[in-house]
Design a protein around this nucleic acid. Structure first.
Lengths: 332, 332
DNA sequence: ATGCCCCTTGACAACGTTGTCTCATGGGCT
DNA sequence: AGCCCATGAGACAACGTTGTCAAGGGGCAT
């Protein structure tokens, strides 16, 4: 099991000093073309790859950004990570990816592990409320929060309250008064905010809040499906349903199609695969992970290159995309 | 911008030597409980996190595995990476993630970058046919191929030919003779094999191969949709469609539902979100990314812990999952 | 011809960590 | 009382790289 060649091996092979090899590898000036050619040849003959640990150790800064999210299996986060990687690569950085599984302890472990890896910066979909323990590392490792804001950090979010209000407003304009809210989860500030938007919109239109229309803990596909099915056992079932996240949206639509209630109006927060294929196609609030990821990585790169930049909360616009299901009128 | 505390700072703070701190951090024996306690206190007071670059440099082995895939935005790969991370974390390793975007040059760059990062091992969904340039690193960095086998490497795959034959057989049993194949892409050995399975099954049943039923380059959602729409312009359109991958499946179903051809039988290679919600629900060949990912990371860990293990190709079973669309009989 | 400067190259230290070796202390044995 | 050994702890080198400084040589201006 021969060891990997190091810069020393290359230097010996090319008959130069290690410093010269270093200069060639880093494309520094002041190396004679002939020397450079000789070194390049040795590099490719030996299959030399610079050891990034040694570089990182010497320079103090790593060559990767960290991305910490709930789970990569969620298409929203997968898309987020995808754009982040593309942009990071353009800056010659890799992506160290870590999932929290919604667990505060694990979030902490993962963040500290990334700190130990000397990542250049971190993009985090936060779980815990308080990240005081990160204070020590912030100076050297900028952090951008995504999806859920945290006041003492930079963040990239959408205006959940406003977007939800717009959706509920549309339902009301179409004559709906029995409007359900599926997908609440107290753990996430996002769904909490969306619920707040729902509450505000109803209040504004003088529609009394009916708690049976907003079941708790229905943020996952199956829970949302079950909760939706439950709604049709009510004396007065809803004529419109707001799904607070894409997974809830899938559950809701599954329930509606299984039971033939396809005349119920539906708007989902966030698009999902197939939402456009189903009939009626599902209207949704556009919370584009590509935009969010892009804004986050751009912000992070700014913070990396210009430390001391003023903290900022970036709020991205959302659109209500009409595809049919959200434009169904209330039946008289 | 104060620097991160190093082991030296902790040692000074606790009044011991750096070696003792190292012993405490690595939970080695032969440190007095009192000393250990003092060091632990200093560690938490200073917020010390061991520098993983220095560790990696000293020990020669990193603390991450590399995962190189087409794109993380593909739900199949997202799920794959998800299980890999879970298992890696249990071994105290992180995941360095890199995408190829189907580009051979980029695949090479990414792999060499990972080699430079001293990853413990690599899981790769290969693009290029030849990875001779990896020979140098294989001894120290085991590699497991997923999804598409490469003869000189360990791999974890499913039997594409057999699985596809089973699907086509089912179509034939149900009376279909006009069977389309959507989702071919010459770049991927998977779809090439699936096409081979299609060809074999037809030949076996004495059904002539009609090239107009197997359009090229339809592996993406939109292409598959367009290709499917095109099929219905034929004098004799298909009564059954095999979608060679989930994205093609989405495109096919979209086309069928848009044009009202919901009586056409469909089987998709690989499940996709919502395939169970649509009516009829889409039958599919179960190519579970969790199983594949799990087999791959287990294999990789074995190779890491027991170098020199005999090379092996792991072929996972697939099931044809009946959900309705694949069980539609040919209309007489 | 001499001196100067620039261009190329190299020697050496240092980054933070751990492996190896050494040393000091103290308890148990003869 | 003296010796040995086990145990705890530290000094030092080394991993591969790059920053700093120095040195050698050639060309140009004087």
């Amino acid at each position: 099991m021969r060891d990997r060649p190091s810069i020393t091996d290359v230097a010996a092979h090319a008959g130069v000093s290690i410093k010269t090899v270093s200069r060639v590898v880093n494309a520094e000036a002041s190396v004679l073309p002939a020397t450079r050619a000789r070194v390049d040849l040795s590099i490719s003959e030996l299959g030399y790859v610079p050891n990034s640990s040694a570089r990182t150790l010497k320079s103090g800064v790593g060559d990767a950004v960290g991305v910490v999210i709930d789970t990569i299996a969620d298409p929203f986060f997968a898309a987020l990570v995808s754009v982040i990687e593309t942009r990071a690569l353009a800056e010659d950085m890799g992506v160290l990816f870590a999932s929290t599984g919604f667990d505060e302890g694990r979030e902490r472990d993962q963040l500290l592990r990334l700190a130990g890896q000397q990542v250049r910066g971190i993009i985090l979909a936060p779980v815990a409320q308080d990240h005081g323990y990160l204070e020590r590392y912030r100076a050297s490792t900028p952090i951008v929060m995504v999806d859920r804001p945290r006041d003492t950090f930079d963040s990239v979010v959408v205006d959940d309250i406003r977007a939800t209000r717009a959706a509920i407003d549309q339902f009301v304009r179409l004559g709906h008064t029995r409007i359900a809210f599926i997908g609440f989860d107290a753990r996430f500030s996002t769904t909490t905010h969306r619920y707040e938007g729902y509450r505000q919109a109803l209040a504004e239109h003088g529609i009394p809040l009916d708690h049976t229309l907003a079941p708790q803990a229905a943020a996952e596909v199956t829970d949302a499906k079950v909760a939706t099915l439950g709604l049709f056992g009510l004396a007065s079932p809803p004529t419109a349903i707001f799904a607070a996240n894409p997974r809830a949206g899938i559950g809701v639509v599954d329930a509606l199609h299984t039971t033939g209630h396809t005349g119920v109006a539906v708007i989902s927060f966030g698009d999902f695969a197939f939402a456009s294929v189903i009939r009626p196609a599902v209207s949704y609030i556009d919370q584009d992970p590509f935009h969010i990821g892009n804004a986050a990585i751009e912000r992070l790169i700014t913070l990396i290159n210009e430390p001391g930049t003023q903290r900022k909360r970036i709020v991205l616009d959302t659109n209500l995309v009409a595809r049919g299901s959200g434009e169904i009128r209330a039946t008289a």
